[in-house]
Amino acid sequence: MGSQVYVNGKEIENPHEFHHHVAPKKQYVQVLGALLVLTVLTVAVSYADLGPLSLPVAMLVAAVKASLVCAFFMHLKDDDRFNVFVFVGTLLFVAIFFSFTLFDLGARNAVNDEQKTFEYWNDEAAAGNALKVGVDHVPEKAAALKAAHAGGHGDGHGGDHGDAKAEGHGDAKAEGHGDAKAEGHGDAKAEGHGDAPAGEHEAKAPANHEAPGGH
């Protein structure tokens, strides 16, 4: 064994002395007390009507609590600085993740206005797409989804659905399904999936529209 021993890049003078910092019991009790007081404060703040400030205030209190837990219970206060770096680095990346996503959300309206995306959404919604899901429609939608599934996998389930769709949408699919029915299941799947994956996608969309009518 070499004479010099390094821990986290620093040379250690007495390598077999296992350094650790033991905090006094009193400190842990005080931290717990502070955490409980802050919990009461969080609940109190939620009842006091602070309007738009309530979320930032609640988050601030939570952040103070989290800092207490990190600094004292998790020993970051007296710990190797590199562990602090890992933790703070994580928070930095979380902050980037949050802020860029929220920038995007904030800019959405401007972009939608400019590109008229919103009208497009409206058309989709009017056509009974998923965007229009209300509370009352949920079970209906589940049924519709099931129906769509049954329809989408028309290979296995009777000719009516399959035919209707095949004629409606494009040649590629028509062929795929046609062969499928004529020759049987084994070949059908290989051809249908291989040739026209885009076609399959389309096949599900119209099924979605039809299904609610059927019920």
Binding site: M1, V5, I12, P15, H19, D79, F82
Partner: peptide, 13 residues
Amino acid sequence: FDTMGQQAGAAKL
């Protein structure tokens, strides 16, 4: 590991 301190430091990291 050379020392307990090093072992504990690695585990904690």
